[in-house]
């Protein structure tokens, strides 16, 4: 640990990695909360994997891979959302197709690009140690965009993720906010790919929020707690992986996975033995129907 702290003061790449982890945890906390309560983790997974197609194409045609990733993510989010809303069809077949086709397209483009094969692992599993200053600005801008939109429309988003029928009856354009939500999830996926790569992104998107959901009684608190958990696991994963020279992405994922299992067991245990703990049921009021 001391070795990590020492290295942190010396090496720019570690400082960048630290900031990248913190920036990613904002996206994972805020949008991960929506993904968990709306139960759209499978959609997020489809978006994440289809991103490889966009990255591969961008690399082949000589663009910035992040731009390609963003384009592919937003495109597949809109496609999935449109199928669900317009055709009222079950979107899981389409998601599976996008998932696999996106990866196939990406692999084809990358194998046809001279000298890029070695970086495939970084795209799939991420490498937070290779984050550049430029990507940090990009991540910061995406975080800012997320926070502005969610801050402005959190009531409408809550209505749509909580009860679509009721939101519709209040005159809220449900389709618009649902698609906007999926686009924001797509943006978050691109943010998180920097840290853990597109295979592991689903864990960082859902697990901190799922842990937070075991204790929070409102979306706002859940977002805050999930952001904190995301930040703590990214930094500790980075620190833990440094000395034994492990890849940071998988270390972070194992850490948050372990935390999720522990927290689930803990809340089950406490509920089973009816030990009061500071969770959802804490505030009891009075009513005639007790």
């Amino acid at each position: 640990m001391t070795q990590f702290l020492l290295a942190l003061t010396e090496h720019n790449f570690l400082q960048y990695a630290l900031v990248a982890g913190l920036l990613a945890s904002i996206g994972c906390g805020v949008m991960g909360t929506y993904v968990v309560v709306k139960r759209i983790a499978f959609i997020a997974g489809g978006i994440a994997h289809s991103v490889l197609g966009g990255m591969g194409a961008a690399i082949y045609f000589g663009f910035d891979p992040l731009t390609g990733a963003l384009g592919a993510a937003v495109l597949s989010a809109l496609l999935i959302g449109w199928v669900r809303l317009q055709l009222k069809a079950h979107e899981d077949t389409l998601i599976s197709a996008l998932w696999a086709i996106g990866m196939a397209v990406g692999i084809l483009f990358i194998t046809k690009t001279p000298g890029y094969q070695s970086d495939l692992m970084d795209l799939l599993f991420g490498n937070i140690l290779l984050v550049t200053e430029e990507s940090l600005w990009f991540m910061g801008a995406l975080d800012g965009l997320l926070l502005i939109i969610v801050g402005a429309y959190h009531r409408q988003f809550l209505a749509v993720v909580f009860d679509e029928e009721f939101a519709c009856l209040r005159g809220i354009p449900v389709a618009f906010f649902y698609l906007l939500l999926l686009v924001l999830v797509a943006i978050t996926v691109v943010l998180l790919i920097q840290v853990v790569g597109l295979i592991l992104v689903l864990a960082l998107l859902t697990l901190p929020a799922a842990i937070a959901g075991q204790y929070a009684n409102s979306l706002g608190r859940m977002m805050l707690l999930a952001t904190l958990i995301g930040g703590v696991v990214s930094i500790s994963g980075l620190a833990l992986s440094y000395e034994p020279d492990l890849p940071p992405g998988p270390t972070i994922i194992l850490l948050v996975g372990a935390l999720y299992v522990l927290s689930t067991l803990l809340t089950r245990f406490l509920t089973h033995y009816r030990i009061p703990y500071p969770t959802k049921r804490q505030k009891r009021g009075t009513s005639r129907d007790e």
């Binding site: 009721f166 929070a216 409102s218």
Partner: peptide, 20 residues
């Protein structure tokens, strides 16, 4: 038409009726 375990308080769910 919502999941009962949704993290939302009574007051917040009633406030949603104020939209529109």
């Amino acid at each position: 038409s919502f999941p009962r375990d949704f993290p939302i308080t009574v007051e917040q769910s009633v406030l949603l009726g104020r939209l529109g």
